[in-house]
Design a protein around this nucleic acid. Structure first.
Lengths: 189, 189
DNA sequence: CGATTTGCCTAACACCTTTAGGTAAATGCA
DNA sequence: TGCATTTACCTAAAGGTGTTAGGCAAATCG
């Protein structure tokens, strides 16, 4: 009988697709096996266990997100860069809700070190070069930006802003304006 | 044999405790049955299914959070109110990580309507009475506040801000300062 | 072309969820 | 107080997921 051609890579990739279709917490070893028309146990040659699979999907999502971020930042600075980067997060979450959820998976320090997390942090700091902040305010600002982006996107994804006026797009735009204004006028301690 | 005295209420309450101990996604009907020293099937007289249990835990957490918020807001206004309210979220999440995760559960419109979500929204708007914002800016501000609070707390809980200077408490304080400044000087469209 | 490695398989077990139907404790009513 | 009803918890059973161990056949390499 012909082989299915499983790979750790392909499993993570298919798992990411599955996550977008049915939700990250519905990503199961069984469902993935069905998708490859293969018996469940066969996956265990490529993936240590269910959690390992989920971690790989998370790492994949973080890389994709970082790639998009880098592309968005190229040739931009200041508010332009801020908005482009923010939109990367929001668009990614809307296009790939399962992957975005995966990216929120709590990683061990080693996994985190091997992840694209560092790239994200560096890109956020790069944006702040367009504003006049010195350490440690820059770190506070990095954390604020992460909070706003992640917070908004995850509340929006949870449906928090639908069914009420004004529409979410407008709030998003105004919030980015406000964040830009805040970074230009960061209050002293 | 003596009865265990199960109730829908007691199950939700015990489920919330369990969530704080082992994580919300580890809250299982079986584990809860063990905790009451009762057979698994017995829970199904009090709770429709596993998801129903989780929803009840989520609603419980939202209520508790709203209660704490109301207590914190009593007698405060302006930045004082802002900081007190924000600290309610952060402290609750740190004291009760499982419950906080539960509160993030995606609810159906009916469930959401029956939840304390409305109280949360009203309290956030009440804080904004201390600032000079009119609709629709007030709505944008409500959404920003929700994003910052939820975003910061969930990133912090995920370990995002540990193991790096300056410590999280300092960023939190400075971010609340910044948010206050922003609300006092909300940029026009 | 034969030997080795690799990929997917079957089998089995443990655990969780859920439903159906039984028995004993609690409750309510004469 | 005694009996009927309701209620609370039980046993039994079936289906799904996670995981490990060990086997056979396909790919690979000498």
């Amino acid at each position: 009988m012909a082989r299915a051609g499983l790979t750790t890579e392909r499993l993570a990739r298919a798992g990411a697709e599955l996550a977008d279709e049915v939700g990250f917490d519905q990503v199961t070893v069984s469902a993935l096996a069905k998708r490859f028309d293969v018996k469940v146990a066969s996956l265990y040659s490529h993936v240590r266990n269910s959690h390992d699979l989920r971690v790989r999907i998370a790492l994949l999502a973080l890389e994709e997100l970082a790639d998009r971020g880098a592309a968005a930042l190229a040739g931009r600075a200041g508010k332009d860069a801020l908005a482009a980067f923010a939109n990367v997060y929001r668009d990614y979450a809307r296009e790939h809700p399962g992957r975005y959820a995966a990216a929120q998976l709590r990683l061990t320090p080693e996994e985190a070190a091997a992840s694209a997390g560092g790239r994200h942090a560096r890109m956020t700091r790069a944006i702040l070069r367009g504003y006049d902040l010195t350490e440690p305010d820059q770190t506070h600002a990095v954390r604020l930006m992460g909070s706003v982006f992640h917070g908004y996107v995850s509340l929006e994804l949870a449906g928090g802003f639908s069914h009420s006026a004004p529409d979410s797009q407008e709030s998003w735009t105004r919030i980015l304006d406000a964040l830009d204004a805040l970074l230009r006028n960061w209050p002293a301690a």
